[in-house]
């Protein structure tokens, strides 16, 4: 567009601008009016996008109109949509776990310990009560736990066993990322033998060893960030609800983590000469018991029951 531009609304010339007086031309977005800004602050606005594009065709490089051409409603968008779906799937399925594992691996131990402290405070306040178990019974379990712990790599970070009255969460046990393992009185009472208790403890130690909860936390943070990035427009509720939902998932492990922890628990139990299949018995016991304890059992946080007992027994026989 060499030369000059004459602005003439209704065909009546108002002012003539030299080429170098034109400072900016707004990019094309959909069909919104284009604005040509001049050095004196004047703005020329037009809805004639095609006209502006024709004027610009000689002055703009193809890369500068690439975006708006890509965005045009065209069958090509189906391919872009498929790419988007593939990217989201690939990110959640492959990239996030890898990133989460990396983040978990480089998170320094003191930081993880601090997460434990905060998390314990929260759950103590939210739904746990002080344990009512007699001290001698606690001491027995602590002794067995102390024998089990040195066989795990996690012992380096310092494993700690705590007892609590489970309240509404009933028979339950869970591991915090920094090595704090919490077992409820209800679970101890439910167990048919000590080996069943230690089987569960070995399983939780395995979660700590592999930093499962930390990896899970990073994964759900990643999913929340992804949703915010994709949604991120008009403050409607979709993003909020989905992001909250993905954070709730932090509470539960994936099936892969569960079977990994089961297998490792069997090895740990073998190492201390206890019955490695006791964990399977305990799983079945909780399944039976929890037919009437609903959705607050060990299984909401430790999913994937089918086949788990079988897999444990199989490995125990090896």
């Amino acid at each position: 567009m060499p030369g000059a531009l004459t602005i003439s609304p209704d065909g009546k010339p108002v002012r003539r601008y030299a080429d170098d007086e034109l400072t900016t031309i707004s990019d094309r977005v959909g069909a919104i009016p284009r604005r040509l800004t001049f050095t004196d602050g004047t703005v020329f606005e037009t809805e004639d996008n095609a006209g502006i594009d024709r004027l610009l065709s000689e002055r703009l490089a193809a890369s500068e109109t690439f975006l708006s051409r890509l965005e045009v409603f065209h069958p090509r968008l189906i391919i872009i949509a498929l790419i988007a779906i593939g990217l989201v799937y690939g990110t959640v399925r492959y990239a996030l776990p890898v990133l989460a594992n990396m983040a978990a691996a480089v998170t320094p131990t003191p930081v993880v310990k601090l997460i434990d402290r905060g998390a314990l405070e929260t759950i103590d306040r939210a739904f746990l009560k002080p344990s009512t178990m007699v001290q001698s019974r606690k001491d027995e379990i602590h002794a067995g736990f102390a024998a089990l712990a040195p066989h795990a790599d996690a012992d380096k970070v310092g494993l700690q066993l705590l007892f609590r009255d489970g309240g509404i969460i009933g028979p339950n046990a869970f591991a915090l990322p920094g090595g704090t393992i919490i077992m409820t009185d209800q679970l101890v009472r439910l167990a048919g033998s000590d080996d069943e208790i230690f089987g569960v403890l070995a399983h939780e130690i395995a979660h700590v060893e592999n930093r499962h909860s930390l990896r899970q936390i990073y994964r759900s943070l990643g999913v929340a960030a992804l949703i915010a990035m994709i949604g991120g427009d008009t403050g409607e509720i979709v993003e909020d609800v989905l992001a909250q939902g993905s954070l709730l998932l932090t509470l539960s492990y994936s099936r892969r983590f569960e079977s990994q922890a089961d297998q490792r628990a069997v090895d740990l139990m073998k190492a201390v000469g206890r019955d490695p299949a006791a964990l399977a018995t305990m799983l079945e016991r909780i399944t039976a018991k929890c037919r009437d304890c609903g959705k607050t059992s060990w299984f909401t946080t430790h999913p994937g029951t089918e086949g788990r007992s079988e897999a444990i027994r199989q490995r125990a026989r090896k």
Binding site: V29, G30, L70, E71, F73, L77, I80, A84, L87, V88
Partner: peptide
């Protein structure tokens, strides 16, 4: 839709 999906990708 075009603008949004290109943004996402």
């Amino acid at each position: 839709f075009g603008i949004w999906i290109v943004n996402v990708v």
